[in-house]
Design a protein around this nucleic acid. Structure first.
Lengths: 220, 220
DNA sequence: GGGTGTGAACGGATTCACAGCA
DNA sequence: TGCTGTGAATCCGTTCACACCC
């Protein structure tokens, strides 16, 4: 009943609202919140409705309450921890990026093949050998897994994480991996993202060059 | 007429096909290609149809030809170059990640505030001061911009890139930025992605615990 | 027979339009 | 008056079902 897109937008709303609270804003209209995330007001209202929260007519939403409502919805009762596989360039950037960002969520353990990394800590996160992936995940009780390995190693990483009992996987490797039905899987494909931008940048530029009206003509 | 999702999938198909060509596969059915990217055969056929390419009934698609067809479609006549803003943890990971990956596309220049980075090169990419962003972008003729700055600096980076003449922007900073109508914009929001996985991992786990049938009941 | 190509049906997300309330 | 809440309409991507072809 709540869709992936819904959740993504709630995450954005939360961030915008945190900023607003910081700025001392107490009440916000759907329109204002929509502007903050470059969305539409109607969409905001629909999303908020899905939460079960109600604003006050003629005023808007109470920042503090809406924030609480979103956090209730998004965060579970206890903290969730993630395991990272692959502490290369991207992996360590992720550690840095996520380190200390949330109270409810964080990378608690990492794994790598490189023996020079094993045993050290990166951004307060200990690194273990990938050989021990499944056991390590289980011992740490990680519910989430993040894959930042080269493509060849990605499926093995996914398997190890799932064997260790994670319920969600975020995959940054440029291959599609397979996980059991019971595990939620999300791909963030940097190469594809950049190729997509390159494509649309190009066609947009071409469209502008030739004066725009060609758009509908070229159908037949 | 061609959608964003289309293009994303074409990018995946291309990668899968490159691998197949490497493996000596000459012909592939829509079903096989779908399996490779974990999609549906019908979807593959629709996407290929959009390209204008036709396979051969009873056999499938000729790997080499389909590959050529996708590349014709996705890549422009000449190489596209990108400018990176922010050579921090994430920025340098992106440089490493994209360095030498494609012939048609690459990060050619980077910008940072940090004077200790300016003047050096990372992964063969020279780093200039952000103050010179717009000019630098223009001089290098970069059509694409990548933002990997802290959130506070993201909008300024976007403005500089657009002023320099990029036609597409890929934003990794955890804020929504604004660009002119003529510029294509894509957000890759790592924090949101992880929160999303965390959310669905949790609800999935809860669903399993309580025996699954609750799904449709809980509506009213 | 086993594949592609595609009009038509489907479904789900977004947007519209307006009722209802402070 | 100016906002939220929401049924109805719309839009768009996906999937089905089947014609067609080697």
């Amino acid at each position: 009943m709540i869709s992936e897109r819904n959740v993504e937008r709630l995450s954005l709303y939360r961030r915008a609202l945190l900023q607003m609270r910081e700025d001392g804003v107490e009440v916000v209209s759907s329109q204002r919140l929509a502007d903050a995330v470059h969305g539409k007001a109607t969409q905001v209202r629909r999303d908020v409705m899905a939460l079960g929260y109600s604003g006050i007519p003629n005023a808007g939403y109470v920042v503090r309450d809406l924030l609480a409502s979103i956090s209730d919805f998004m965060d579970g009762p206890q903290m969730q921890s993630a395991a990272l596989v692959g502490v290369g360039n991207l992996g360590s950037a992720l550690l840095a990026h996520f380190s200390g960002r949330w109270r409810q969520l964080g990378i608690k353990v990492a794994f790598d093949v490189d023996v020079t990394k094993v045993g050290r800590t990166f951004w307060d996160c200990p690194v273990y050998p990938v050989k021990r992936l499944a056991e390590g995940v289980q011992e740490f009780g990680a519910q989430l897994g993040i894959i930042a390995t080269p493509p060849q190693a990605a499926q093995a990483a996914a398997d190890g994480l799932c064997a260790g009992g994670v319920r969600g996987v975020l995959n940054f490797a440029p291959v599609r991996v397979r996980v059991p039905e019971t595990v939620y899987l999300e791909h963030v494909d940097l190469a594809t993202s950049l190729e997509k931008v390159a494509y649309f940048a190009r066609v947009k530029a071409e469209g502008v060059e030739m004066g725009e009206e060609a758009e509908e003509k070229e159908e037949e």
